[in-house]
Every structure is written in structure tokens, then in C-alpha cells.
Nucleic acid binder design. Structure first.
Lengths: 340, 340
DNA sequence: GGGTAGCACTCCCCGCACGGGAGTGCCAAT
DNA sequence: ATTGGCACTCCCGTGCGGGGAGTGCTACCC
């Protein structure tokens, strides 16, 4: 029993099952793929694959369906990259290039992936921690409130309102603004706390209150993990006919609404060495997502490290090669555009 | 045949149908409500209501179900306000008050409505057009780019990057910044174009290019209708068991992803004189939403006029009184908090 | 004239049995 | 190791029948 053919059989099963959405039997397999052997032989291979846990049958006397483990093997070893057509590439490029600002770019990118993969697309906003600070603006609001605005080099803007016990002194605010920008501009946000610590020097004791408050707000903002926003698109694709079980979309929608879940997955997948990371079924470690797979890749840094992630969520029986290349292509364009 | 009783019957049918999700028959009606007459009498009333188009039967020999017209009558004349419990009110208050910034408040408000109504919640971000400008900030980025940041009195921040043909002169930028804020601060965005028009006076001809470019960007930003963002929560509630037809959620999800549709509905409903506006079934004028109803109310201006809207979308057979009071309550708290 | 009781009728829905079909596992033969 | 043959299992679509809920109609009552 040839080991190679057994893997061919697994690949054929995955491909056929993805295409037909129905358990695939030995007869159909030899007909659709030129395997050069008889159904009976395939049945033997199937028995072995089932023994190994790569495929399973929904019930006795039904065809076979890949298991999580089967998909995993397929993704790791059996699938071949499926390049996008050049019109597709062009469309991605022009669609993203005509965007106005950061929000717009991100929004278009996520819609694009939803469109290309016909699945749910997810994008993580450029993280504050990893991007660099471009400018800090202090805006007095009334006499006792100060609006603190942080602008990063990815064009992201964060704001906080600060309530003060005493009236504002405009000149102090101006000095603080200048010094903040001198010591902060261009630095990675993760390095900032150190720079901020030395900032209080040179201010009169009475002004220290203000300075400390502002510094505290800046640090607090940076520390807030919750600011890692996630944006979705294409949730309607979950309800498309032929999607797994129509009733199973409830738990999925719930999972998607919990940003925490998605952020955890994003950050775990950032550890993967692979260019495109994949989580299949139970690998997602979340009950609502056991019948889905998640394909992500990083974007935002031409150096190779990445600022944030973007990806696509679909049924276990998704078109892995197609999804992976779509996600990757969009991420590349996105990175290029953000670099400007 | 008493006209009053006929309306009582309609109310009873709506209430029972909402509660049981099943067509309601004459027998069940007299048992559950003390109408004081026999099933046969009710049947006569039902025949009249059906004649009038307020109810219908899914098939011969089935109970009756309210039509769009029936729900409309119920909402307009038959329903009684259902006040929230005081623990509920308190929960809303504290939950919203502990929010950090505008994004956070809006996010919490929409989740709250999803939670309270067990339906999909929708909120429209405070519109740029109607809010007032608090501050304009100009931030040089490199020597040939200028970041324009607009801050409104609702705490919203809009940004645009401007690419210049010539190098920046910091002193001109500073003067422009000052003048912009003098002429713009506190004005409604809709009145701004006039104020901006006079701004170019007093700048050297060589600087006019810069000034005009900045003014153009500000005006363009304000003109962009697309900036009326919409945020959703509770989409998973669509898939809850007992929701209309599970297969019908596809079109609904599609409709919800098209912000245009929601924005149109929001703006149409803003014209309604009623405190809480309701669109039932086909009244939404959108195919994907024919089996849903949309309940909205304004928020954001204590004067009574409103800056934006917030609402809830659910099945035709929703708990209208409950939904209406939940939406209204959240909108009130939201308005109060934004006023600070 | 409105309300009521009785009754025949309609239609849904559920359980059940049945048969066709797809696919398997195994065995003996090559 | 591969293959053809064959018995077996199980799903699924279909047709059938009975129970039940609900209606519309008619005759009757106050």
C-alpha cells in the first residue's frame, strides 16, 4: 500500500468534499481523479486514513469527510498555492489605493477579503503598542478640561478627556505640548514610558499636577489593550446556502462579537512562523468556532514583522489555498499603502 | 358587534402571538384573556379583522397572525408603555457612566440595547453636520505633509492628510491654526463654509495655496456623508432559536452590512414627530428587512432636537412596548452623558 | 340584531413503514 | 498489493393514515 497514494487520496477527498459539500465515496473518487486504481483499492487506503484519524464517516455506509487532523495535513503538506488572477490583483490595488484615510483603507481591505473569499473577514486595527508616535496634541476645552490627542504614524488617532481640579494655564499647556512632542515623536509607543518619566523636570511644582495627569493619561491610553479594535465584514456570508449547518451560525456570530476571542486568536497566530497562519476547528480553542477555520496573516510592516493582522473565517470545508492567497494578497497591498 | 372589543381582540392576538410565536385561535384567546364572550363570537370578530387586513391565517384552519397593518395599529393605538424596572434603569446608568470616551460610550450603549431587547442594536454616530466644532489642529508631518484634525463637541475626531507641493512654513501654519480656531470654534459644522470663505484674507499670496488647500480639506471632510458611521451589536440574536425563519437571516445580515440602508432609514425616521419611531415590515422599503421591524429614537441633544439616532431591529413579532421603552431609556441616558 | 352552541369540514403535522440507492467491509482470486 | 464480487448497513424520500386544532356556517336564544 503506497504511502504516496494514500496522501493523494486524502488530498482528493479534501478537494472533492470542499467542492461538493458531500461525503465522498470510493467510486466518485476514482471517477473524478485519475488515480489509476480501482475503488476497492481506494477503500483500503480510506480504511487506513480513517485509522490514522484523518477522515471519518458521518455514519456507516456513508462516504468519508476530512477531520480537523485531515485538513491540517492538507494545509501543511498537500495544498498548492493558488495565485490570484492578474485582473484580481489589479482590482485589489486600485480599490485600496483610492481610499481616503486609515479607517477607509482598513474598511476597504476587510470588505475585499469578504468579497474574495465569500467568507467572514476580520481585521485588527494597527496596534498602538507597536506603532510609533507621530504627534501629541493638547486641546483646552473650557477652562477645566483638557483633550489629549495621540496621533500615530499609521494615522491612527486616540483621544482622552482629562478633568482638572484647577484652571488651566495656557502657557504651561503650550510648554508641555512642545516638550511632549520633542521627547515622544518618532518613538515606538512601547518605549515611551521611559521618555515620559523624565518629563516632569523643569516644571514649577504647582504645574506638576497637570504634567503628571497628562503623562498618566498618555500612559494609560497606551496600556489599554482594549484599544485593539477589530472590524468585521461579510457576516452575511455565514448564512449563504450550503454553509455548514444553518443553525450553527448562532454560536459563530456570538464568537465574532466577542472581540476578546478574536484578539486572542490574532495574537496567538502572530507567534506562528508561517507567512499565513491557519487554525482549524478545535484548534481555535473556542466552542463557537469548532466548525470553522481561521486564516490570518500580518500586515503593516514592510520589514517582515507586522503591526497587526487580517484574516478570513469560514467553514471547516473552506477553500484553503484560495483563502490563504486572497488574505495574503490583500495584506501585501495593505502594507504597501500604509507605508506611505 | 362592538368596535371596542374588536380592537381588544387584535391586541390580544398580537400579545399572544408575540408570546407564543404560534398562530392564535379563538379558543386560546378566550382562555388567556378575560374577554367575557365565547369563542364563536371571537371568530366573528376575527373574520371582520381579517376582512380589514389586520390579521391573516397562514393556511385554512389555522389560527390568526397579525399582518404588518395589524402591528401598525397595535403600535399606534393599542400598546401601553412598559416602563423598565428600576434596577434596569440603574444598571443602564452605571454601565454608561463608567465609559471612557466617545467610542466607548457608543459601544456600550449599543450593546446595552442588544442585551435589553435581545435583538440587533444599531447606533448612528453623532453626525458631523449637526454637531459643533470644538477645535482644529494642524500637525506638520515631514516637510511636505500636513495632518488636519477636526474635533467636535461630541468628542468625535476626524483626520485628513494633506499633501503639499511646497515646503511648509511653520509660522504660517501657526497663524492659520489660530485663525481657523477663532473663526470656527463653537460653530455648527453646517454654518462653517461661510466662515471659512472669509479666511483667506490677510495671508500673503504665496501662502494662499496652503490656506486654500486646508480650507478645501475641511470643507470636503464636512461634506462627506459617508462619515455617518453606524455600529451594530447583537447580530447573534438573529440566530436565536425561535427567531422567525432561520434561513431568512441571510438577507437581514446583508441589509445590516449596507450602512446606506440603515442610514436612509435613520434619516427618514428622524422626520417622524413621535418620540420613538417604528418601521414595520415592508414599511422599511427594503427587501432584506420585510420580515423585521425597526424601532429608533434620537439622542444627543437635550433640547429635543437630536444629533443622531439609536435603535433596535427584530422580527415582526417583537415585543414592541418593551423594545420601545428600552431604546428610549438608553437614548435618554446617552444624551445626558454626552452633554457632559 | 348580536351572541352562542353545535357540527361538518379543512388542513397540518406526526409517526411509520417501505423501497431505492449509495457506500462500505470482507473475502477469495489474481 | 490489487481487484471483482457480494452481502450488509444505513440514509432518505415518499406515501399513508390518524389525531388534533381551528374554522365557517347554520340554527337557536335573549
Amino acid at each position: 500500500m503506497s504511502e504516496d497514494r494514500r496522501l493523494d487520496v486524502l488530498r482528493a477527498i479534501v478537494e472533492d468534499y470542499v467542492a461538493t459539500k458531500e461525503p465522498v465515496g470510493s467510486r466518485a473518487l476514482v471517477e473524478r481523479h485519475s488515480l489509476g486504481v480501482s475503488p476497492a483499492t481506494i477503500r483500503n487506503d480510506m480504511a487506513a486514513l480513517e485509522e490514522g484519524g484523518y477522515i471519518a464517516q458521518p455514519h456507516t455506509s456513508a462516504g468519508r469527510v476530512p477531520t480537523d487532523k485531515g485538513y491540517r495535513l492538507f494545509v501543511d503538506q498537500l495544498s498548492t498555492v493558488k495565485p490570484l488572477s492578474s485582473p484580481e490583483r489589479r482590482a485589489i490595488g486600485t480599490f485600496l489605493e483610492t481610499a481616503q484615510d486609515l479607517d477607509d483603507v482598513v474598511d476597504r481591505a476587510v470588505r475585499l477579503i469578504a468579497q474574495l473569499t465569500q467568507q467572514v473577514a476580520v481585521v485588527q486595527y494597527p496596534s498602538l503598542r507597536r506603532s510609533a508616535l507621530r504627534h501629541v496634541e493638547l486641546v483646552p476645552v473650557g477652562s477645566r478640561h483638557l483633550l489629549v490627542v495621540l496621533i500615530t504614524d499609521t494615522g491612527r488617532v486616540e483621544q482622552r478627556t482629562l478633568e482638572l481640579g484647577t484652571d488651566l494655564d495656557e502657557s504651561v499647556v503650550a510648554r508641555l505640548r512642545t516638550r511632549l512632542n520633542v521627547s515622544a515623536a518618532g518613538r515606538r509607543l512601547s518605549e515611551l514610558p521611559v521618555a515620559l518619566g523624565e518629563l516632569t523636570d523643569g516644571f514649577a511644582p504647582t504645574d506638576q499636577v497637570l504634567v503628571n495627569a497628562v503623562v498618566a493619561v498618555v500612559e494609560e491610553t497606551l496600556a489599554q489593550e482594549s484599544e485593539e479594535r477589530v472590524v468585521l465584514a461579510g457576516t452575511a456570508n455565514l448564512a449563504r446556502v450550503g454553509s455548514s449547518d444553518v443553525r450553527s451560525i448562532g454560536p459563530v456570530l456570538e464568537a465574532l462579537e466577542e472581540q476578546v476571542v478574536l484578539l486572542r486568536l490574532f495574537s496567538e497566530m502572530a507567534e506562528d512562523h508561517a507567512a499565513v497562519a491557519v487554525r482549524i476547528g478545535r484548534e481555535t480553542q473556542h466552542d463557537g468556532l469548532v466548525e470553522t477555520s481561521f486564516v490570518t496573516t500580518g500586515y503593516g510592516d514592510e520589514g517582515g514583522g507586522s503591526v497587526a493582522r487580517i484574516g478570513s473565517i469560514g467553514p471547516l470545508r473552506m477553500d484553503y489555498p484560495g483563502t490563504m492567497s486572497a488574505v495574503r494578497a490583500v495584506a501585501r497591498y495593505l502594507t504597501r499603502i500604509l507605508a506611505q
